[in-house]
Design a protein around this nucleic acid. Structure first.
Lengths: 194, 194
DNA sequence: GACTCAAACGGACCGTGGCCCGTTTCTCTT
DNA sequence: AAGAGAAACGGGCCACGGTCCGTTTGAGTC
């Protein structure tokens, strides 16, 4: 499905499997949030260095653990039955996609949250809340028919520092394209859907 | 502007100021990413415990540093001149808001990124990229006129685990509301703006 | 100005993540 | 089969974040 990367040596592959198994066990027992690199290494009878080399960092380990579940979801929308998979028309597939992702993430919530160092801080920090209510107010005044709070989050997320930086430095976007995109999003947010 | 919190004792206020000054200096000198709690404490001739107590954690310190700049932006959109500030009609203010935020964040990019433990990992992880191209493809097939890549990011961001969890557990959303929101967003994304 | 008590201080302390590098193991070649 | 070189190993090591608790200091009270 995704690139399997360079072939691993036999011992490396074996250790990788043991580490994932150990990590899954520990996560199930003590919660994914309390997973430590050292404990995983010990439970797999392997050195800490091995964990580092294989998964890079703690987040990488969690991500690798999630990868297994993730593939289930990927199969579902890439080759599963309609409306999620091919066969249905694109709009129907798109409509089915959101709920599928949400359901999937909620089924593995603890692990997804554990992979994120600062889960919800982003949304509770005062500056974000202020921006949010500002946008909420403007949306209401502009008379949108959409769910304003949800829409405001969606709008703000497209201004996220990390996303903007990613788009500009890795994907070659320029400011003009971002601004045009913003205008379009706002227009769609306040549009009166017939 | 925002709650100033309980009054600080004189020494606490003084130390807070010294810490912020020291932090600003160190950030300017070595880059915000390399800021350590210990170095800040030392530079302010203060114990580490004081930094902890005052700002909670490293992110809190960075946020406090950003707060000063953030207020500039907040004034601009809360009480500055139109079209950003009051006076213009809501739609115009909304349209001006995006670019203003982007410009502001780019002006203090290093600090914003430093406040985020895992800046752009979110967008480069394989599972995200796969979801992204999936949505991009569907959007194209559905014949939207919007910037598909941007729109896809915006759609995906509203499925973000941390956001969904925040909305459900702190804001009282239920699945039905989220799904309705998703349907609406998709509809707007593919709508043909007359 | 003394008394009191909460608030703030500081730095030793601990757990964790991630790195480094000398040692071991695998795999490929001939 | 044996030698060579690359890959992986392991666990000691360090830096950092965050906490804890005995000590100090400031701010009201009489």
């Amino acid at each position: 499905m995704l690139d399997p990367g360079p072939r691993l040596r036999a011992d490396a592959a074996r250790n990788r499997a043991r580490l994932l198994e150990a990590a899954a066990g520990l996560a199930a027992e003590h919660g994914a949030a309390n997973l430590t690199m050292e404990a995983v290494a010990a439970a797999a009878s392997v050195g800490k260095g091995t964990v580092s080399r294989r998964f890079g960092d703690r987040a990488g380990l969690l991500l690798a653990l999630l990868d297994h579940h993730e593939r289930r979801l990927q199969e579902a929308f890439l080759s599963g039955p309609p409306p999620l998979g091919p066969g249905a028309d694109p709009l129907a597939r798109l409509l089915a996609f959101g709920p599928a992702v949400v359901r999937h993430e909620r089924a593995h919530l603890d692990m997804y949250l554990a992979a994120d160092p600062a889960p919800a801080r982003r949304f509770t920090v005062p500056s974000y809340r202020l921006r949010l209510t500002h946008v909420v107010v403007l949306l209401r005044q502009a008379g949108t028919t959409a769910d304003v709070e949800l829409t405001a989050h969606a709008l703000l997320s497209s201004l996220d520092t990390a996303l903007v930086d990613h788009l500009i430095t890795r994907r070659g976007f320029d400011l003009a394209r971002l601004e045009a995109g913003w205008r379009d999003q706002v227009a769609r947010a306040v549009a009166d859907l017939a």
